[in-house]
């Protein structure tokens, strides 16, 4: 009984973790955002699951029904979905700008370019010094 009662939550955890994994393991900025939205959606499952009561119906009050699922998690998740889409929209517009500025949306390629920027700042400021070699090495890696 114990196992079956919690089975649903475990699947949700699995989904959450897949999303979370995409966010932290992948380098493509778009894919990260997809991961993020999967992660968030899975959290929504979790909320909605806890609001469910076996044998109950949607919380639209009517005289025919006695048992309703809990409306509060629904409300919360409505809000959370909105927040999610807001984040996604903003994130996407950032990705678009990054693509324009760097010509790439892969984290590692962007990092290389950033290191290059650092290097230029450094050269301009101090001339080639001991740190220069280190930075250069980073760049060539």
């Amino acid at each position: 009984m114990n196992i079956i009662g919690l089975y649903n939550y475990w699947i949700v955890v699995l989904l959450m973790m897949i999303g979370f994994y995409i966010v932290i393991a992948h380098e493509n900025l778009i894919k990260k955002l997809v991961g993020l939205s999967i992660f968030q959606t899975s959290v929504f499952f979790f909320y909605i699951s806890m609001g469910k009561i076996s044998g109950a119906t949607a919380p639209i009050l009517d005289e025919k029904w006695q048992l309703y699922s809990n409306p509060l998690p629904h409300v919360l998740i409505l809000t959370a979905i909105v927040v999610g889409i807001a984040t996604t929209a903003l994130g996407l517009s950032l990705v678009v700008r990054i693509q324009e500025a760097y010509g790439s949306i892969e984290e590692s390629e962007i990092q290389v370019q950033d290191t290059h920027d650092e290097l230029e700042n450094h050269l301009e400021a101090y001339g080639p010094g001991p740190n220069f070699a280190i930075l250069n090495q980073d760049l060539n890696k």
């Binding site: 469910k52 309703y68 699922s69 629904h74 998740i77 996407l92």
Partner: peptide, 24 residues
């Protein structure tokens, strides 16, 4: 899970708008 409002929203947002934005 009886969350009709949420389902409605998720369908229109997740499958609709957000996919459109991603594609754009």
């Amino acid at each position: 899970l009886d969350a009709v409002d949420v389902a409605f929203t998720e369908a229109s947002v997740g499958a609709g708008i957000s996919t459109l934005l991603f594609l754009a």
